[in-house]
Design a binder for these strands. Structure first.
Lengths: 354, 354
DNA sequence: GAAATCTCTGCAATCGATTGCATTAGTTTC
DNA sequence: GAAACTAATGCAATCGATTGCAGAGATTTC
C-alpha cells in the first residue's frame, strides 16, 4: 500500500524545494512559469492533495464553519442549511453541523470548537440560546467570528441576520383583520425563544392598532412543530367560545392545527381562517393551501454564510456590528377567508402557489 | 489579548513535561494520581483545550465524518442527518455535510476529503452516485471507511445499510390490490436512482403476482419532490382512462399528487387511492392522512453512523462487507380505500397517526 | 561599471500535540 | 544483596505544510 503523497514527494519529483511547491500552489505569481509547470505536472503524477491538518496547524485556520441549529429535522432549518452549504462550499469552506445546540453546556461547546481550532467561525441559528453564554465567547480574545441569525440583540456586539419577525407577524395579523375578523387567536412558538416573543409582539401590535381584545384563552401554547400545533387545535375545539381566525407562529404549527380541527369536522377557511409563518415547501401542497408569511430562507442562509466568511477573512473589519434585516412577504392562499358571521366567500389566492 | 493556551502552558503550570500532560489527558492510568491532579488543576486554570489540528496531524485522524447527501432540504434526509449527528456527537465525532453530492466530480471530491485528512470516513446517502467512482476510492490504499446507505451493491466491497425497498414497495402495492384495486399506477422516483429501480421492481412484482397489467401510460415520471408529484397528478388528470389507485415512490411525490388531483376536484380516497413511501412527519397531518410505508429513518442514521465509526476505529475489521437491511412498516391511514367501482367505504385506519 | 533593485528559490524554524525510547527510582525475587 | 522487574516521567523526533529571511542571478539606474 502506497502512503498518501506529501508535499515532499512533489518537491522531489519536480526537483525543487517544498517551499517552492507550496508557493506554486498558493501564490503562483511568485514562481517562474517553467517551475510552475513542473510542479503542476508533479502534482498530477503523484496525485497530491494538501493535508488540511498540517495547513490548519500552521495557519491557524480550519477552513470550516460551524452551523448550530436547534433542529435539523425541521424543514425550515434544513432549507437554510442547504443554502449555507452551497455558499460555504463555493468559497472553499466545509460545514460542520451541531444540532440541538442550546442547553446548559452550549457555551462550553462553542468555546471548545473555536479553541480546538476545528472551526473558524460560527453561525448561530438558535433563538433559545442564553445571551450571556455568547458574551463569554466574544469577550476574551479577539471578537470571534460569529453571526447570530434568527435573533435580535441590538446592543450586543455580534453581527446579526434576521427577518423582520415582529413586522411580519403584524402584517399577517392585519391580513386577518382586513378580511373582517375581530376574534383572533394566536399559536405561540416555544417558550423562551426570541422568535416567539417577537411574533407575539407583532400580533399584539396589530390587534391593539385595530382596537381588538387579546384573550388569554385564545393564546395557544406551541413548539414550532406539528404535534404542538395539533394539540393547539384540540384545545381550540374544546373552547365553547372560539375565535374565527388564528395566526400561528409558524407553518408547522398551522398545519398541525389544521389537521386537528379538520379531524373534528371543522372546515378551513369556512369555519376558521389560519395564517402561518415561513412558507415551507409543503405549505402550498396541504389542503387548503396555507396563507403564510414567506421568509426568504435561501437568502438568509446565503447572506449569513457569506457575511461570516467575510468576517473570518477580515474583509469586514468594522468594529460596529452589522444588523441585516430581511423582509418577509405575505403569500395569500386558501386558508384565510372572511369570517363566517359576514357570510362572504373565501378570498381568492392573490399569489399563486409556485 | 492572550493567546489560546497550549499544552506547553499547562506543562509549565503543572511543573511536568508536555508528554506527561498528554498522557494525563488521554491515558490517565499511566500517570500517578498526584501528577494527574496537578495536571487537571493546570488545565482548569489555563482553560486549555487541545488543538485538534495538531492532534490530527500527528495521529492522522480527524475525528470527523463526512455525510454526503443528495438534498438536505428534503425532510427525509434531514431527519436521518439528525440521528447521524446525535450518534456521531455521542462518540466524539464531528459531522461535516456535503450536499448535492452526486455529479461528475463527486469521485474527486470524496478523494480530496479523505486524502486531505479532513475526515476519517464517509457516509454516502446518494442513490445516484456512479459505482465506478466509488471503486476508484476503495481500491488504492487501504479500503476506506465508507458506508453506503440507500443503495444496493451486493458484490461491491462496501458495507451497506438500507431499507428493504423492493419488498416494501411490493407490500405497499399489495395493500392496494387487497383493497380490490386492479387498475394501479406508479409515480417513479428520479431516473438513474437505485431506489427508483428497486421500488419499481417491487411494484412490478406485486402486480405480476396478482396477474395485473402494468400500463406504460400509468407509470408517471417523478423526482422524489412535491413539484414532480404535482406534475404527475396533472398528467393523471389528463388521462381519459385512469387507474383507481397509485403507488408513489415516496411521500413527497404522493403529497404533490394529492394536491394536484384535489385541485381538479377529485376526492381521495373516494375517486383515487394513493400510498406513499417514507412516512414523513407531515404525512399524518395532510388531508387525507397518508397511507405509507414507514422507513426507520432514525434507526437508519444511527446504525449507519455507528457502523462507520466502528470501522474507523477498527472495531469492525471483517474483510467481508456487511449488508444491513432494515425493514419497513405499512402504516394505513386515510388515503387508501376500496376502488369506486366496488362502492365500499374507506378503510379505517389500522395504525393510528402517532 | 558600481549600486540598487527585482525575481526566483532554498534553508530552516514553526505550528501543537503525540509517542518511541531512555532514564530514574522504587519494588520484588531468589 | 544483586538481578530483574515495574511504574512514572522526560527527551526529542515526528506529523506536513507555510513563511521569514537570505542568497544567487539577472536587470535596471545613474
Amino acid at each position: 500500500m502506497k502512503k498518501t503523497p506529501t508535499i515532499q514527494d512533489v518537491a522531489r519529483f519536480a526537483h525543487v524545494s517544498t517551499a517552492t511547491v507550496s508557493r506554486a500552489l498558493s501564490s503562483p505569481e511568485r514562481v517562474s512559469e517553467s517551475t510552475r509547470a513542473r510542479v503542476s505536472e508533479a502534482v498530477r503524477v503523484t496525485g497530491y492533495t494538501p493535508n488540511q491538518s498540517a495547513r490548519s496547524l500552521r495557519q491557524r485556520t480550519a477552513r470550516t464553519i460551524l452551523v448550530a441549529l436547534p433542529d435539523i429535522g425541521n424543514p425550515f432549518f434544513s432549507t437554510i442549511l442547504d443554502s449555507i452549504e452551497r455558499e460555504a462550499t463555493m468559497r472553499g469552506y466545509g460545514v460542520l453541523v451541531a444540532n440541538r445546540f442550546s442547553g446548559a453546556d452550549s457555551g462550553r461547546r462553542m468555546r471548545d470548537y473555536f479553541m480546538s481550532n476545528r472551526v473558524d467561525g460560527l453561525l448561530l441559528f438558535d433563538g433559545s440560546l442564553d445571551l450571556s453564554q455568547l458574551m463569554m465567547l466574544t469577550g476574551e480574545p479577539a471578537p470571534l467570528p460569529l453571526i447570530v441569525a434568527c435573533e435580535e440583540i441590538p446592543t450586543a456586539p455580534f453581527h446579526t441576520v434576521k427577518t423582520d419577525n415582529s413586522y411580519a407577524a403584524e402584517r399577517a395579523t392585519r391580513h386577518l383583520i382586513d378580511l373582517g375578523h375581530r376574534r383572533i387567536g394566536h399559536i405561540r412558538g416555544p417558550a423562551g425563544n426570541v422568535l416567539t416573543l417577537e411574533r407575539e409582539a407583532g400580533f399584539a401590535k396589530a390587534m391593539a392598532a385595530a382596537g381588538l381584545e387579546i384573550r388569554a384563552d385564545w393564546m395557544f401554547a406551541g413548539g414550532f412543530d406539528m404535534d404542538s400545533g395539533h394539540a393547539a387545535g384540540q384545545n381550540f375545539m374544546r373552547l365553547t367560545d372560539r375565535p374565527t381566525a388564528v395566526f400561528a407562529a409558524n407553518d408547522e404549527g398551522a398545519i398541525g392545527f389544521l389537521s386537528a380541527v379538520r379531524q373534528q369536522g371543522l372546515d378551513c377557511p369556512r369555519d376558521v381562517s389560519i395564517v402561518g409563518f415561513d412558507d415551507l415547501a409543503i405549505s402550498s401542497h396541504v389542503w387548503p393551501p396555507l396563507t403564510t408569511m414567506r421568509q426568504p430562507r435561501e437568502a438568509l442562509g446565503r447572506i449569513a454564510a457569506g457575511a461570516l466568511i467575510d468576517v473570518i477573512e477580515g474583509q469586514r473589519r468594522s468594529r460596529v456590528p452589522m444588523h441585516m434585516v430581511l423582509s418577509s412577504e405575505l403569500i395569500i392562499r386558501g386558508s384565510t377567508a372572511c369570517p363566517p358571521a359576514l357570510g362572504r366567500s373565501a378570498s381568492s389566492p392573490v399569489v399563486a402557489a409556485e
